[in-house]
Write a protein that binds this DNA or RNA. Structure first.
Length: 554
RNA sequence: GCGCCUGUAGCUCAGAUGGAUAGAGCAACGGACUUCUAAUCCGUAGGUCGCAGGUUCGAAUCCUGCCAGGCGUACCA
């Protein structure tokens, strides 16, 4: 709709110039806005004000030249006025919104999709939690954001792959193995002072018990290194399986599970380091090998190989990100917890060193989640192994509520997640508010079927019945959906969709309370049913992008 | 110290690329179910957009400085 108005204005500008009303034929990019207040029309433009200096005319004179030459072939405008310093306000006819409804019914689940991405290959990597313990709430937020961003980008014509990076190599895995091994020995009555650096959670003991049940005391007789390494492999596999299940439970699916260890096994890490040596962007100092990340804007250089010969986590990260581009991605998006933000410059450096542009790499930093219960912080001590896992949260509040709440904030701001609030089935809880719209409309459609108006079809007479101001507001909101999706994709901000849905829901509930859809007048009923069914389709469409279900009944 | 993020109603937060009188929800108060689901709606009240300058027709939004909070600043992951 904005585009249509914009086009009309440009045509008017050309026309006015042809008639000699405007001296310059240079027309800048004008903006069409939806005024906050109804008294300023359905749309307004600042075109006249922007052009004041280039046309060397007063804004009001320019505005007159525009309005005087406005053509309206499709008869969508009911009134145009010039207001304030030179705004031009457009008032549209109710009927100008009807095509939006036609499109929604025709495109249904595809409404709002686009070819913005033109098939560009994007990888979204998220969660990527170490397989040393279960997922917690923070991972849940990352999962909800990453999954949804992936959905939205795919909807906008990008070729998206979702990936989970498994940190199954290095010291933390060794620590995991030792943790399990100590618990295992304890099971045979050995008194062990359990190191504070080891993982404390009960799940470690559970794995030890499994090993004991399967293999008995076999590992007590082997040398420690072999036993630890076995425990590590088994525990990591076990925990990763749990993570997969939790994510599945949360409705998050990955296209690829990528193993860090595989980068070592294939020699990729080694070859990247050699490559960097050849390019002389790494150097030796005090026995360690450093990457000159400061040449690429990092505040200082970073170690790739430690003095003791061990490779740092950064080493495999360099290899990993290079490998991503070799798979043909035009853009790589990493979703990280905000506490990792110091890592961005050094990874940007490695992307640039690999010959890629720095804007082919983007990081979404998701802020912390504070878990509350009834307004009080929930004690979370990883060290003592006392924490509420993502699985606990989902079991308690439900998948839909959890996912929706994670997306009710810009990822940039910290989120308070209140378990009591998330469980509440009232208007405090926005999920149900939105889902309720879907259920209510489903109910209306069922009732309509009983009255044998099962086919939601439309004709000119029926649709012409849609004239109430609440109905126009609904249509205006629906018309905004495609641009909401587009902005959400461009900025990678799923919460824009969440807020759109809450707003649409609010308009619908108000309408529902004021007007009946099914009335004694069949024509009116058909028209309203058509409108309401469009609302339902858009609600379902949006919820799907967020990974939330759209129930028929509640 | 340096870097990143945040500061908008009592609380939790929206306000992309500057637009007209800054918006929701919760909490408070008062109303609406013989009618398609009251998990809903309507109304009232609530503001120095952290502070101070600057840019311009016009600033919550852009620039500078300051204040407050969070996070980071490892040969940890």
């Amino acid at each position: 709709m904005k585009q249509k108005i914009k086009q009309l204005i440009y045509e008017a500008l050309k026309e006015a110039h042809k008639k000699g009303k405007l001296p310059s034929s240079e027309f800048p990019d004008i903006q069409i806005e939806e005024p906050k207040s109804q008294v300023h029309g359905d749309f307004s433009t600042n075109a006249a004000m922007i052009m004041a200096s280039s046309q060397k005319m007063s804004p009001r004179k320019i505005a007159e030249a525009i309005t005087g030459n406005l053509g309206d072939r499709n008869q969508i405008i009911s009134k145009v006025e010039i207001a304030g310093p030179g705004f031009i306000n457009f008032y549209l006819k109710e009927s100008s919104w009807y095509p939006v409804l036609f499109r929604i019914h025709e495109e249904n689940a595809r409404f709002g999709s686009s070819n913005l991405g033109k098939g560009e290959k994007i990888q979204v990597e998220f969660v990527s939690s170490n397989p040393t313990g279960p997922l917690h709430v923070g991972h849940g937020r990352g999962a909800a954001v990453g999954d949804s961003v992936g959905n939205i980008l795919a909807f906008c014509g990008y070729d998206v792959e979702k990936e989970y990076y498994i940190n199954d190599s290095g010291r933390q895995i060794n620590t995991l193995g030792r943790s399990v091994f100590y618990r295992y020995r304890e099971l045979f009555g050995e008194k062990i002072e359990f190191p504070a650096t080891c993982y404390q959670g009960d799940y470690i003991r559970d794995i030890a018990i499994k090993i004991k049940d399967a293999d008995g005391n076999k590992f007590l007789e082997q040398d420690e290194e072999t036993a630890v390494s076995y425990c590590a492999r088994l525990a990591a596999k076990e925990i990763l399986e749990g993570i997969r299940q939790d994510l599945d439970f949360f409705g998050v699916k990955f296209d690829v599970w990528f193993s860090e260890q595989s980068l070592y096994d294939s020699g990729k890490v080694e070859s990247v380091i050699n490559d960097f040596k050849k390019k002389e962007i790494v150097y030796k100092n005090e026995g360690a090998l450093w990457f000159k990340t400061s040449d690429y804007g990092d505040e200082k250089d970073r170690v790739v190989v430690k003095k003791n010969g061990e490779k740092t986590y950064f080493a495999s990260d360099i290899a990993y990100h290079q490998e991503k581009y070799e798979r043909g991605f035009d853009l790589v998006i990493d979703v990280w917890g905000a506490d990792h933000h110091g890592y961005i410059p050094r990874l940007t450096a490695c992307v640039e060193a690999s010959g890629k542009d720095r804007n082919q790499f983007q990081v979404i930093l998701v802020q912390l989640v504070n878990l509350l219960r009834g307004g009080e912080p929930v004690a979370m001590s990883t060290r003592a192994g006392e924490f509420i896992t993502l699985k606990d949260v989902i079991s308690e509040v439900g998948r839909d509520a959890a996912r929706f709440i994670f997306l009710t904030r810009h990822y940039d701001s910290p989120l308070d997640f209140d378990l009591e609030l998330a469980k509440k089935k009232t208007s405090d809880n926005p999920v149900y508010y939105v889902q309720y719209v879907h259920a209510r409309i489903s109910s209306i459609i069922r009732k309509a079927a009983e009255r044998e108006i099962s086919d939601i079809v439309i004709d000119d007479e029926a649709i012409a019945m849609i004239i109430q101001s609440e109905e126009v507001e609904l249509m205006k909101a629906l018309a905004r959906y495609p641009e909401t999706i587009e902005n959400s994709a461009k900025l990678m901000e799923p919460h824009r969709i969440t807020f759109f849905l809450m707003n649409l829901a609010s308009l619908f509930h108000a309408y529902y309370n004021k007007h009946r859809v099914l009335t004694d007048d069949p024509l009116l009923s058909r028209g309203r049913l058509y409108l309401v069914a469009a609302v339902q389709k858009v609600i379902r469409n949006g919820l799907t992008l967020l990974g939330v279900s759209a129930p028929e009944r509640m």
